[in-house]
Amino acid sequence: MIGTSGWRYPRWRGDFYPHGLVQRKELSYLAERMPSVELNGSFYSLQRPESYQRWRSEVPEDFVFAVKGSRYVTHMLRLRNIDAAVANFFASGVLALGPTLGPILWQLPERVEFDPEVLGGFLRRLPRTTGEALGLARGHDARLHGRSWLEIDADAPLRHALEPRSSTFGDPRATELLREHHVALVVADTAGRWPAFDAVTADHVYVRLHGSTEPYASGYTAAELDEWADRIRGWRSATDRHGNPREVFVYFDNDARGRAPHDAIALAERLR
């Protein structure tokens, strides 16, 4: 699955999005050209169920939304005392995505360093199925009264990925914990701004490409895309613990100058 981190950027209009395309048609236009997108508004604030329902209605049935977890959990609470916050996140409408719900991304700020007790406690609290997520969601607090979504289409597996930005997560114990809980350690290209981890810790691989020379801005050369395509083929050639081909999710976050959708399409073409 190759896509972009978000889809609503003014710089894309008149470039990736044709002149005259109304904003409300942008997601459906993108979904005709790539199979997945990273939904990042959920990182900044709790979205509403009707928003998730609308987004689901605008994409094909086999489209996949990766959903970025709440920064209240990762940046403010720093993975501590998170039960109510995680319940609120899943009650906010995430489960309304139904079968289009893909991996949940949890991004940590650089100031959050590896602590085995804290990381282990966080990983143990993550729901592994939509049924478990629904059970957590029912414990939401008063902030979600009257605006929660407490339904699922079916009890399906949930996948998680963690994107740390502290070099302390290079500790082998961090990798072991992630493997124990089958949570993917994000492979992130940040032009050297933050550490690059490459350990495979789950049945899926989650890649975020922020830019090779300038974070969030620079595009990828043909040679660089060839290298990423080779890495993805390597990951996909392996099987997961169930004997199935390993899934790889790749999202371009070099959106500031409009490179992300073009790079995503170019990479996908190399892998067809």
Rank of each mutant, 00 (worst) to 15 (best):
S237A: 10
N244P: 13
G243K: 08
A223E: 14
T221P: 05
A223H: 12
R233S: 06
A229G: 02
A222Q: 12
F252N: 07
T239M: 12
T239K: 14
A217M: 11
I232H: 04
R236H: 06
R257F: 13
R233L: 04
W228D: 04
A229N: 01
W235A: 02
V250H: 05
Y216A: 11
L225F: 00
R257A: 12
D230C: 08
R233Q: 10
G234V: 02
N244G: 14
H242F: 15
N244R: 15
D230F: 02
D226Y: 06
R231W: 00
A238P: 07
R233P: 04
G234H: 04
W228I: 01
S218D: 03
A222G: 12
T221R: 04
Y216N: 10
A217H: 11
H242D: 15
W228C: 00
W228K: 01
D230V: 06
N244S: 15
S218Q: 05
R231I: 01
A229P: 05
D226A: 10
A223S: 14
G219Q: 05
A223L: 12
P245L: 03
R241E: 15
D253T: 09
A238E: 14
I232N: 05
I232K: 00
D253W: 07
D226C: 06
E247Q: 15
W235K: 01
L225A: 00
A229E: 02
E224N: 06
G243M: 09
E247N: 13
R257Y: 14
H242E: 15
V250M: 09
Y220D: 01
Y216V: 10
A222T: 11
N254I: 00
L225I: 02
T221I: 07
H242A: 14
R246W: 05
S237D: 10
E247T: 13
G243W: 08
I232S: 02
T239G: 14
F249K: 09
N254K: 04
D253H: 10
G243R: 10
D255F: 06
V250W: 08
A238D: 13
A217V: 11
E247S: 14
R233I: 04
R236E: 10
D240W: 08
P245H: 07
Y251D: 07
S218R: 02
N254Y: 04
L225Q: 04
L225K: 00
D253C: 03
T239Q: 13
A256V: 13
R233K: 10
R233Y: 08
D253F: 07
S237K: 10
R231E: 00
D230Q: 11
R236Q: 11
D253L: 07
T239D: 13
V248R: 04
R257V: 09
E224H: 07
D226W: 04
D255E: 07
S218N: 01
Y216W: 13
R257T: 11
Y220H: 03
A229M: 00
V248E: 05
D230G: 08
E247P: 11
A217F: 11
E224R: 01
R257I: 09
R236N: 03
R236C: 06
A256P: 09
W228H: 05
P245E: 01
Y220F: 04
E224M: 05
T221D: 05
D226G: 06
V248T: 10
A256S: 14
T221C: 05
R236D: 06
E227Y: 00
A238I: 11
E227D: 12
N244A: 15
S237R: 12
Y251G: 03
G234S: 03
R241K: 15
A256D: 14
S218M: 02
Y216P: 07
N254H: 07
